[in-house]
Computed example of a mutant assay.
Amino acid sequence: MSKAATVYDVAAHAGVSIATVSRVLRSPDAVRPATRERVLDAVTALGYVPSGSARGLAERRTGVLGLYFPGFDAAEDAPALDVLSSAGAAAPPFTVVEDEGEPGAPATSMLFLDEVLRGAELEAWKQGFVLMVGVGRDDPDRSTVRDMAGRVDGLMVLASSVPDDVLARLARRIPVVVLSGPPRGDDYDHVTVSNAEAMGELTRHVLAQVGEGAVAFLAGPADSPDAEQRREGVVAAVAASGRATEELRLLRGDFTRASGRRAAEELLRDGAPPSAVIAANDQMALGVVDVLHRAGVRVPDDVLVTGFDGIDAAALSVPPLTTIRQPMIELGRAAVQVLARRLEEPEAPPAVVRLPLQILLRESSARPA
Rank of each mutant, 00 (worst) to 15 (best):
E76T: 12
D77Q: 15
D77H: 14
A78I: 10
A78S: 08
P79H: 09
A80F: 11
D82I: 06
V83E: 13
V83H: 09
L84I: 13
L84H: 14
S85P: 04
S86N: 08
A87K: 08
A87T: 11
A87Q: 11
A89L: 11
A89D: 15
A89Q: 13
A90H: 09
A90F: 07
P92I: 05
P92Q: 09
T95P: 06
T95E: 14
T95Y: 08
E98K: 14
D99Q: 08
E100T: 13
E100D: 14
E102S: 13
P103L: 09
G104V: 11
G104M: 11
A105Q: 13
P106A: 07
P106M: 05
A107R: 15
S109L: 09
M110Y: 11
L111V: 13
L113F: 14
V116Y: 01
L117I: 03
L117V: 04
G119W: 06
E121M: 12
L122Y: 07
E123K: 08
E123I: 03
A124V: 04
A124T: 02
W125P: 01
K126N: 09
Q127V: 06
F129I: 00
V133Y: 03
V133G: 05
V133C: 06
G134Q: 02
G134V: 01
R137M: 13
D138P: 05
D138W: 07
D138Q: 13
R142E: 11
R142A: 12
T144A: 15
R146N: 09
D147P: 01
D147Y: 10
A149S: 07
V152W: 04
G154W: 04
G154T: 03
G154H: 04
G154C: 07
L155R: 00
L155Y: 00
L158F: 05
A159P: 03
S160K: 14
S161F: 09
V162S: 03
P163M: 10
P163W: 13
P163H: 10
P163S: 10
P163C: 10
D164A: 15
D165R: 12
R169P: 05
L170S: 02
L170T: 04
R172V: 06
I174Q: 01
I174N: 01
I174R: 04
I174H: 02
P175T: 01
P175C: 03
P175A: 02
P175Q: 02
V177E: 00
V177S: 01
V177L: 00
V178C: 01
S180F: 02
G181P: 07
G181Y: 02
G181I: 01
P182Q: 11
P182R: 14
R184D: 12
G185E: 06
D186R: 06
D186H: 04
D187K: 11
D187N: 12
D187W: 09
Y188E: 02
Y188V: 03
H190C: 00
H190Y: 02
S194R: 14
S194N: 10
S194V: 05
N195I: 05
A196K: 05
A196G: 14
E197V: 15
M199S: 06
M199G: 03
G200E: 08
T203D: 03
